[in-house]
């Protein structure tokens, strides 16, 4: 698992700013196909920003990144949907359609891919069952609790068997038992070949996947990692005399 023969994600010297604020500073790492990576760090560290860059929800400014074979630098709007058919995302705020039923929401990515209806029904039912949502399939999502909505968001992400799964604090609204159950499901998908990047600061969740890599972000910088390789740069500790400026990325 620790060798990286063919990277699924390769991030090189990526920096990203919102106005004057640098949310990511010179981030460099890569993750091989089939890998499992925990992205950790305090709130505001840049985890969400990094995940958004990786599925084309933010344009890549400085640095270079390759995801599932797509160069993100200058990725045209027409190719973003193609990238997203390889990459599923579980959002911190779910992003499900409250007025539609659970089954409808989960079926959405399959319909977008023009999967035949019978297959859609079969896959949706299977995924809902594995997440304990089968009795809620026909409920409008607005009737569900936060934890149930989160599971709908997860079901929608895994129903397509993505190459890469990005999950932003997917256990944030779940109790401990449910969170651990969910990690079992993620682990299962991972053994079947899905590469997973999961942002969290929950220690229990991280402990549930012993073989996973860990990458720590602090203030937009990679400050610790559980492995070492040529594609990884860990920043030295922040100098005391004020915030450092981001290095100009991608030019070595």
């Amino acid at each position: 698992m620790d060798t990286t023969p063919e990277p699924m994600v390769r991030v090189q010297h990526v920096s990203h700013n919102f106005g004057a604020h640098w949310a990511l500073r010179n981030v460099t790492f890569s993750l091989g196909k089939g890998g499992f990576l925990f992205l950790c760090g305090p709130s505001g560290a840049g985890k969400t920003t990094l995940l958004r860059l990786l599925h084309g929800a933010l344009p890549l400014g400085r640095g270079a990144a390759e995801v599932a074979g797509f160069q993100l630098k200058g990725l045209s709007g027409a190719r973003v949907p193609l990238l997203r058919r390889q990459v599923s995302v579980v959002f911190q705020d779910f992003r499900i359609l409250p007025g539609r039923s659970v089954a409808d929401n989960v079926a959405l990515p399959l319909e977008v891919r023009a999967v035949p209806r019978a297959t859609v029904r079969k896959r949706v039912n299977a995924v809902l069952r594995s997440l304990g949502l089968d009795d809620k399939a026909l409920c409008p999502c607005s009737w569900l609790s936060g934890g149930e909505q989160q599971r709908v968001a997860i079901a929608r992400a895994i129903v397509v068997n993505p190459q890469l799964l990005l999950a932003d604090e997917p256990t944030g609204n779940l109790d401990r038992a449910l969170a651990l159950h969910l990690m079992e499901i993620f682990k299962q998908f991972n053994t079947f070949g899905t590469t997973i990047i999961l942002a969290t600061h929950n220690r229990d969740v991280m402990a549930a996947v012993p073989g996973a890599r860990h990458l720590e972000l602090t203030d937009g910088r990679v400050t610790a990692a559980s492995w070492r390789d040529a594609d990884l740069e860990v920043a030295p500790a922040e100098p005391e005399d004020g915030p450092a400026r981001p290095k100009p990325g991608g030019r070595r």
């Binding site: 027409a78 058919r85 992003r95 959405l108 977008v112």
Partner: peptide
């Protein structure tokens, strides 16, 4: 708007 955003996020193409 939300619906359109979500469709985009799950990989819907322009014409879809």
């Amino acid at each position: 708007r939300d619906e359109v955003d979500i469709l985009r996020l799950v990989g819907a193409g322009r014409w879809y």
